[in-house]
């Protein structure tokens, strides 16, 4: 039911953990299935130079979390903002229809983290 890429990211998830002093944090949960994801970013000169995640959830939730961290690493904030829910699912060669909501979780957590970073950034420099 899962693609090889999903299973690879599930078995060997990239960038697992918690950042020390992250510049932005995003947290998303699905109240129905109970999945929870937290994603932190480190930003320097408008570039995401580190990202880490923690996820409680199924294979798809873990794989999409891992995938989204790989997709944003080294990207500018503007580039990262462009990453859509669909793009995460496509990068994994697709997800079963019932699991599409998992890719929402990952992309939404990323966008929350960017928003959080921008708010903090605005306070410091604004």
């Amino acid at each position: 039911m899962y693609t090889e890429k999903v299973m690879d990211h599930f078995e060997n998830p990239r960038n697992v953990g918690e950042l020390e002093n992250p510049d932005g944090i995003g947290k998303q949960g699905n109240p129905v299935c109970g999945d929870v994801m937290e994603l932190g970013i480190k930003v320097k000169n408008n570039i995401i130079e580190d990202v880490k995640f923690r996820t409680f959830g199924c294979c798809a939730a873990i794989a999409t979390s891992s995938m989204v961290t790989e997709m944003v690493m080294g990207k500018t904030i503007e580039e990262a903002e462009e990453i859509s829910r669909q793009a995460v699912a496509e990068a994994l060669d697709g997800l079963p229809p019932a699991k599409m909501h998992c890719s929402n979780l990952a992309a939404d957590a990323l966008h929350d983290a960017i928003r959080d970073y921008k708010e903090k950034h605005a306070k410091v420099f604004g």
Partner: peptide, 24 residues
């Protein structure tokens, strides 16, 4: 602390076929 489906698939990789209570 772990999701049943993630556990199910991980145990399957280890050669154990079980089942989740969840219908996920």
């Amino acid at each position: 602390g772990v999701d049943g489906e993630a556990l199910l698939f991980s145990m399957d990789i280890e050669g154990v076929a079980a089942s989740t209570g969840s219908a996920c």
